[in-house]
Design a protein around this nucleic acid. Structure first.
Length: 280
DNA sequence: GCCCAGGTATAAA
DNA sequence: TTTATACATGGG
């Protein structure tokens, strides 16, 4: 049972089923960094946040209860019962094994625009460099938040749409720069309305996203799951099948089960943490 | 140095 | 419709 307390230091969430490293550094979001003192700091939209694990739970530093309820509560998906979800996987030995490997991982409900750009950048790339490119994107083109940490908001579609490709060179994003601009121009110009896409049937939504240059089947699934809260995304995709076959050679494809959404994130994280698996 | 990164667009078979 | 290749950068 989730317990939320306002304290002088911020909002304390006790027994939150939230492991900061598992959740913030598992390849689903790219704006949070672990600090030398063990806390985690990052920004979502234009909202900065520092999180710290304490003996009593996870402390959301300095924010008010109102800020927690109006934004971070949904962002961390706190109103979903992950314990129950994990239990529902118990019938599938393989899936349950993966889910139990990272019991403190939650699937974040990120902003659709940020997810779109982040996962365009993520293609054929590694997490460390993805984070670097996203960080430079925000520093060069986002508005400074004006806090003591020197944080920057994620740049708007309009700001990026008005840049030329050469102007994105400092990001060191390589050929993805053209993709970023194409996405920004279609969203800023109204050709693609991300709220509308989020409400479409999953098939229509996939098709709509893939109009964007640089968005293929994989990036589209990421945007749907992480940026639009569509848990039916990633119906045991081909990458996952290959990876699981290697990690669980005795399993038949049927025993992988019908994995999607949160389940696939558990599997992905499990595969990523096992060097013996070279499919991811 | 070398291989590779949760891919995609494009051309060619 | 399927398969091969280039693509910019830098992490390990």
């Amino acid at each position: 049972m989730l317990q939320i307390l306002q304290t002088p230091d911020g909002v304390l969430v006790s027994k939150p089923e939230l492991d900061l490293a598992q959740t913030l550094d598992c390849g689903q979001c790219f704006r949070f960094y672990e600090q030398p003192d063990g806390s985690w700091h990052g920004v979502a939209r234009d909202k900065p946040l520092t999180l710290r694990k304490t003996g009593r739970g996870v402390l959301f530093e300095t924010i008010s209860r109102a800020e927690f309820d109006s934004f971070w509560r949904r962002y961390f998906d706190f109103d979903r019962d992950y314990d129950a979800i994990r239990e529902s996987y118990r019938a599938n030995e393989t899936l349950y094994h993966c889910a139990c490997f990272s019991p403190g991982m939650r699937v974040l409900r990120q902003d659709a625009w940020e997810a779109l750009i982040s996962f365009i950048i993520s293609q054929n790339n590694n997490v460390k460099r993805i984070k670097g490119i996203v960080d430079r994107l925000c520093r060069y083109f986002g508005e400074p938040i004006g806090n003591a940490d020197g944080d920057y908001a994620f740049p708007s579609p309009a700001v990026l749409a008005n840049r030329r490709e050469e102007e994105l060179a400092p990001l060191r994003a390589g050929w993805r720069a053209a993709y970023i601009l194409d996405a920004a121009r279609r969203v800023a110009g109204g050709e693609i309305d991300l709220n509308t896409v989020a409400a479409m049937s999953i098939g229509e939504a996939r098709k709509a996203l893939q109009i964007i240059h640089g968005v293929g089947p994989k990036v589209a699934e990421c945007v749907l799951l992480y940026g639009m809260g569509r848990l039916e995304a990633f119906p045991l995709d081909v990458w996952m099948k290959r990876a699981m076959k290697q990690l669980f050679p005795d399993c038949t494809p049927e025993s992988f089960g019908d994995c999607a959404g949160i389940a696939q994130q558990y599997i992905f994280h499990y595969c990523r943490c096992h060097p013996s698996c070279c499919c991811l």
